[in-house]
């Protein structure tokens, strides 16, 4: 298959994979039945993503995309991270077979879910504190 050098590189040498021990937030999307599951761990301090790690069960595109996304997000503010669109990843990687595009969307969705999880957690802790 004719994937770009960049996508192959991220597949062969995935960046930031694994778990974060005490994450500020976790996001998971997909399910085993459809074949792709992505999990993103975030360590957030002062609204800045200090660390990000991922775990992916999926195809080449799914793995490479989550890896690429983590490199784009690390060190950025939450606001900046939320600005990353699904299409941005596709652009960065060049051509992806159209049937595989949904696999690349999952990475962005997992990140959004992790950030949502972060907000939920912090709201909850505010509520707890205010009580």
């Amino acid at each position: 298959m004719n994937y770009s050098k960049k996508i192959i590189d991220h597949f062969k040498n995935p960046r930031n994979y694994g778990k974060i021990k005490k994450p500020s937030a976790v996001g998971q999307v997909g399910n085993k039945v459809c074949g792709d599951v992505m999990k993103i761990y975030l360590k957030i301090e002062n609204d800045i993503i200090k660390d990000i790690k991922f775990e992916t069960l999926g195809c080449l595109v799914a793995i490479a995309n989550t890896s690429l996304l983590t490199t784009l997000v690390k060190g950025k503010t939450i606001k900046q991270a939320l600005k990353i669109k699904k299409e941005d990843l596709v652009k960065k990687f060049g051509k992806i077979p159209s049937i595989k595009i949904h696999c690349s969307f999952l990475a962005v969705e997992a990140l959004k879910k992790a950030i949502e999880n972060y907000y939920e957690k912090s709201t909850n802790s505010h509520v707890r504190r205010n009580r």
Partner: peptide, 14 residues
């Protein structure tokens, strides 16, 4: 278990 066949196929292809 717990890996995807296409990713494995591509890894072998590389």
């Amino acid at each position: 278990s717990n890996i995807e066949g296409e990713a494995l196929t591509m890894k072998l292809d590389l």
